[in-house]
Design a protein around this nucleic acid. Structure first.
Lengths: 210, 210
DNA sequence: GTCTATACTCGGATAGAC
DNA sequence: GTCTATCCGAGTATAGAC
């Protein structure tokens, strides 16, 4: 794919850096971390690290992008659902994908901090991460709408609210819960969303397995 | 209440500053504003402004506190509900209070930005605003639980989820929606929460008036 | 009580050696 | 490609005059 050794090396190194940064932040947290701190953690000098990225903002945006990419393969909803089905557990795509990611998030506090922080900073349209969030939100909105729409057709969730609005609700509640959880780690993000989904099941139907 | 002229003056001036700061931020927005900017807007020098507050963080925390105070009197749920009732509109306390504030928020973008920004910064327990959020969240949680619990007894909302969890959901969805709305002002915060509440009405019951 | 002026810190960016 | 060194801006905090 890459034509030249040097170019390929650059890209490979970039990926390696992102990979490590991801691990470090996940494990050690991000409290408004500076490029210097991250550079240390990754084993480069500040200048060395910025050699691979345009700016601090671009660097952090790329970290989030990488995170999404990894979550996507690790929690591919269809795969998870299939796995759980063979398990005897009955699940829908929302619980299998979205809620699983949320559950996983409580294992990686630093990434949640980074995400939430950047989300508010990027509200400014001129912020380098603005486009990232626009695209991410749109994609998530679409896949959630699809999954929820399907559930409505199957009758596993109420149709008293349209799938688009419900997708927005689910996404927002997850974002809000993450901030809440940062303040008080005892809140159960995945459990709360699950409880909401359960409450939205059409009367009579039940997805709970107790 | 105040013993001494100077002390009373100090407190009064502080209030006046907060009042003005609130207006300015509401109208002109807060994009990570510095103390200097705010001082200019309020008609004081940076040092003059900090004369009244311990630090930047304390200043901004007090602004949010003041905001809550004003919202509390402007949107006192019982009053709003009573007003709407005399209007012929039937409402519950959640829609009358909480959702009204949310609707109002779209008029004051700067305050939403400030709130969201501080919310993520204050996740750090050593941040001066940490206690503010802890208390605020707890209070809101309590009043929402009470209101939702009452609605469950009246049968205007489902009891397939406990009031405490539902309160957390409502609060989180509002917080999440605010960030979403900052990115894309076309999202309808109040409308979305209302749609959720409608969807959670027990089957058969209806609060919608169309 | 409010201002001007300044000190100090942090952190991102950049130049240039190796 | 990576480092050291440096620069520079932003922004809070504080000293001291008025």
């Amino acid at each position: 794919m890459a034509r030249r050794g040097s170019y390929a090396k650059g890209v490979a190194k970039r990926e390696e850096i992102l990979q490590r940064a991801l691990e470090v932040i996940a494990r050690e947290g991000y409290r408004g971390a500076s490029v210097r701190e991250l550079a240390d953690a990754v084993g480069l000098s500040q200048a060395g690290l910025l050699h691979y990225f345009e700016s601090k903002e671009e660097l952090f945006t790329e970290i989030l992008r990488k995170r999404d990419e990894m979550d996507r393969v690790a929690f591919e909803p269809e795969a998870v659902a299939a796995m759980e089905a063979s398990d005897g557990t009955e699940t829908d795509l929302v619980r299998a994908g979205f809620v699983s990611v949320l559950r996983h998030n409580s294992e990686v506090p630093g990434l949640v901090q980074l995400f939430s922080r950047l989300a508010v900073d990027a509200a400014d349209p001129s912020h380098p991460a603005h486009a990232y969030f626009r695209d991410r939100d749109a994609q998530l909105q679409e896949s959630l709408s699809d999954a929820l729409g399907a559930m409505q057709e199957e009758g596993t969730i109420t149709d008293r609210i349209d799938a688009t609005t419900l997708a927005l609700v689910i996404q927002s509640v997850a974002d809000g819960l993450q901030v809440r959880w940062m303040h008080d780690p005892s809140v159960d993000m995945a459990g709360t969303v699950t409880a909401l989904l359960d409450a939205l099941a059409p009367t009579g139907a039940s997805t709970a397995d107790e």
